[in-house]
Design a protein around this nucleic acid. Structure first.
Length: 105
DNA sequence: GGACTGACCAACC
DNA sequence: AGGTTGGCCAGTC
């Protein structure tokens, strides 16, 4: 279903487990679009639903979203997500593995 | 209806 | 090792 690129993104984001995070590029690649990382963020900016968009960070662990970045960091800390002294998310330990069944063609 | 923009990422210099 | 550019597509003006 969901023939839209956005829909696939929402589906994956909504499936991110508690205490885990994924990067924009990871989602894009997981759904079969290696270069569409920009639109993954674009979909988040639209803030369509009550998705755990705070679990979506950059590939290096940095949090994007401008002013909302601080809010997202707090939410992640509230989910026991380990942070690095640099103020970035420790993706080394929190990188969620996206299952193929989550991505419904 | 056309053009610009945009929560990014990876490659290239 | 760090900075800049290209690329991609949907939404907004």
């Amino acid at each position: 279903m969901a023939g839209s690129f956005f829909q696939s993104v929402y589906d994956v984001v909504a499936a991110i487990p508690y205490g885990k995070v994924v990067s924009y590029g990871d989602i894009a690649r997981a759904i079969g679009y290696p270069r569409r990382a920009r639109f993954v963020g674009f979909a988040m900016r639209a803030c369509p639903d009550h998705l755990p968009w705070h679990r979506v960070v950059m590939s290096d662990g940095s949090i994007a979203g401008g002013e909302f970045a601080l809010v997202r960091e707090m939410l992640l800390r509230g989910e026991n997500v380990p942070f690095l002294p640099d103020g970035r998310v420790d993706m080394k330990r929190c990188r969620a593995v996206i299952a193929p069944e989550i991505v419904k063609s």
